[in-house]
Design a protein around this nucleic acid. Structure first.
Lengths: 198, 198
DNA sequence: GTCTTTCTCTAGCGTCCGCTACACAAAAAC
DNA sequence: GTTTTTGTGTAGCGGACGCTAGAGAAAGAC
């Protein structure tokens, strides 16, 4: 494999261009980002974009994968690495507060904001499913904590997970509306006071 | 005033048509709602729409006023009628959980979701300002509670208000993603556990 | 060098967008 | 009745959208 390519080589770096596309979709959302916006930011012509990435929707789907593996990967790490359910959920929220307000890229969570007003139902549904799947992974981690006796035996993992998800989404909206990392950390402080103890 | 109109009378009820427009904007957002969608749902032709409501943007602004005075009015009532800051904030969240999931109209809060991915910066900014203004009214009510000794003297009204705002926005997103009123009530239960006591 | 393969550029396709000119219809004023 | 005023329907404007045909440019294979 990886045999030498014949023909004229691509004149741009595909990975760099993909990152530029990601930033555009993150900032403006799927539909509000036009192919013209993309080609301008990526520094390439429309035919090059279509040759390298397929159509706009396929490009967006590739952007989603890239996002999940980079800016959106902190959640999975927190779930895997923290010793307790509470520590995992708090770390998810703390890192969200940090990433959502980090300078140098758009604020908030792309999965929450990129297809809010979307006339392509499949795209809207894809992101909605992603959000609900994330909450389901929270619930699974919390249930582990319940089973381990970290939480009261009658604690409802699904409800706690939805609570964390709602706060997470609130943090994202707040960061879009101008809140600072300190502002969001204060929200997390208050949110974690609701966490049940044995 | 109210002297008899000359000329051919309007063949549709303006208020009914405005409510239909509100539902469309609430459901799909400002930009994803086309004039064609509006005329179809309102049951009128495009020239009638433009004669009665001005352009699309002016119609949306009138829809915002109507929303604030109807579906969005519960917040102001809670702030004015409840005796304590805590009761006011909890009622805001409880009524949000109810309204956001009420059958018969779109779910969630229009001010939060109608201009998320919006290429008209003025519209996006108008709704952002509305959201932040709402949080500021929360802060003012909470400060009253602090001054009245309902809360610890060092309680930060602005931070508490932002917390309530974040939970409010999380409830709205959750309702859009399919959460039931019971689901949201459970979120409010947990959220109010974070509220400070003297 | 020539041939083949692949990328890039110009130019423009068809469609939908918000919006409106214009002719006609329906009411009050007279 | 006629005149005046205003709403409605048809039909289409200019522009932006996502996308692509076709010609030329730039590389490896030989």
């Amino acid at each position: 494999m990886a045999t030498k390519q014949r023909g004229r080589p691509r004149s741009f770096d595909r990975d760099t261009a993909l990152e530029k596309a990601l930033r555009q979709f993150w900032e403006h959302g799927y539909e509000a980002t036009t192919v013209s916006d993309l080609t301008r930011e990526m520094g390439i012509g429309a035919p090059s974009l279509y040759a390298a990435f397929g159509d706009k929707r396929t490009l967006f789907e590739e952007v989603l994968v890239r996002y999940a593996g980079s800016y959106g990967a902190f959640g999975g790490r927190a779930l895997a690495e923290e010793p307790t359910a509470r520590a995992a959920m708090e770390r998810v929220l703390r890192e969200a507060a940090a990433v959502f307000t980090e300078p140098g890229h758009p604020h908030g969570c792309m999965v929450i904001h990129a297809a809010t007003n979307c006339t392509t139902p499949e795209i809207e549904q894809t992101l909605r499913a992603q959000r609900n799947a994330n909450i389901a992974t929270f619930a699974a981690r919390i249930q582990q904590g319940v089973d381990a006796g970290e939480l009261p035996g009658d604690a409802d993992a699904a409800r706690l997970a939805r609570y964390v998800g709602a706060v997470f989404q609130g943090l994202s909206q707040q960061s879009r509306d101008g809140a600072s990392r300190q502002d969001l950390d204060a929200v997390v402080d208050l949110a974690m006071r609701g966490w049940p103890t044995v």
